[in-house]
């Protein structure tokens, strides 16, 4: 029996695609605000934290939110201090982190020995 990949990789990939479309197409809508907030608060961190495998969902989510907000801050700050301030650029980096993390989660599940 194959191990279940879980819902999170799909959520992270889906959120990354939607926030990318809404932001880069400069869609003016409350949906954009809601999706962006969700993505920035949860997705980059969850992409990384689930790779650590800490178990309990509530704890995983707590760490993911903290790491997401820290990564958002650090990525944007590095770009700003480097003289390359670009919210879209920062978002692209964060989407990249999220997609790579979600991809690794899927790959790890694929390679895991069958139960």
């Amino acid at each position: 029996m194959r191990r279940s990949v879980g819902v999170w990789p799909a959520v992270i990939i889906g959120s990354s695609i939607v926030v990318g479309i809404l932001t880069f197409a400069d869609v003016e809508s409350p949906v954009r605000s809601a999706v962006s907030l969700w993505f920035l608060i949860a997705c980059p961190g969850m992409a990384v934290v689930r790779l650590i495998g800490v178990g309990e969902t509530a704890v995983e989510l707590t760490l993911a939110v903290a790491l997401s907000l820290a990564l958002d801050t650090l990525v944007a700050m590095v770009m700003l201090y480097a003289g390359m301030w670009s919210p879209e650029g920062s978002l692209a980096v964060l989407i990249g982190v999220s997609l790579v993390g979600a991809g690794l989660q899927i790959l790890r599940t694929e390679r895991a020995p069958s139960a």
Binding site: V19, D72, T73, A76, P87, S90
Partner: peptide, 17 residues
């Protein structure tokens, strides 16, 4: 100490606020 404010700027811009 601008970390929080840079984060706020990112959220404002990406969220289209």
């Amino acid at each position: 100490w601008p970390g929080f404010f840079i984060l706020g700027a990112l959220v404002t811009e990406v969220g289209g606020l």
